[in-house]
Simulated scan of single mutants.
Amino acid sequence: MSPDISLHLLGQLLWKAVAVSAPLLLTVLVVGLAVSIFQVVTQIQEMSLTFIPKLLASVAILVLIGPWMLGQLIAYSSSLIRSIPRLV
């Protein structure tokens, strides 16, 4: 396998990882920002107030988008495994 092919595969892997993790990370970012703004406005500084909404949002996103995420990972893995004879 040449270095060009391995760098191409690494690039595909990184972009797939970004695409799969982006919905979860963006959701947690938006929820965290909303909770922080709420805490600043109300001056409530409770630590569980920042943790619990992020946890609930993460679980909700994983339930809703989890099958898509799994499908993307399976498709990438199967295409990579199928291309092993061609790459070696």
Rank of each mutant, 00 (worst) to 15 (best):
L49Q: 01
L56M: 12
I65F: 15
Q12C: 02
G11M: 06
L10P: 07
V18A: 13
V40I: 14
V88F: 15
F38H: 06
A60M: 11
V63H: 11
P67S: 07
L80E: 09
S78E: 13
L13G: 15
G32W: 04
A22N: 01
S21C: 02
K16W: 12
A22K: 01
L73E: 11
G71L: 01
L56G: 04
A17V: 12
M47L: 14
L14D: 00
I65H: 15
Q72S: 11
P3Q: 14
G66D: 02
S6T: 15
V18R: 04
Q12N: 12
V59I: 15
Q45N: 13
L13Y: 07
L73H: 06
K16D: 11
V63N: 10
L80I: 05
I65G: 09
Q45C: 00
L73V: 10
I74T: 13
L29R: 04
G66F: 04
S21G: 06
I74A: 13
V88Q: 10
Q45D: 09
P23I: 06
V30N: 11
Y76G: 02
R82F: 04
Q72C: 10
M69D: 02
V28P: 04
F38E: 03
V40A: 15
I5T: 14
Q39L: 02
L13R: 10
L26D: 04
S21E: 00
L26E: 03
S48D: 00
L33N: 01
S21I: 01
S79F: 00
L14Y: 01
P23T: 04
S83C: 03
L10T: 11
T27D: 07
P3C: 12
P23D: 05
V35Y: 03
K54G: 12
G32H: 10
Q43D: 10
Q45T: 07
I44G: 03
I61P: 07
V18G: 06
V30I: 15
I5S: 10
V30Y: 12
A19K: 14
Q45P: 01
Y76D: 03
R86G: 08
S21W: 00
M47S: 15
F38R: 08
Y76S: 05
V30S: 14
S79H: 03
L13I: 09
W15T: 13
V41Q: 08
I81A: 00
S79D: 10
L29V: 04
A22M: 08
L10M: 14
L10E: 06
V88Y: 12
G71K: 03
L13P: 02
L80K: 06
R86P: 00
A60Q: 09
M69P: 01
Q43R: 15
S79V: 00
L55V: 14
S6R: 14
L25S: 05
A34G: 09
L9F: 05
Q39M: 09
I5R: 11
L55I: 14
F38I: 11
I81D: 00
Y76I: 01
S79Q: 09
A34H: 02
M1T: 10
S21F: 02
P3N: 15
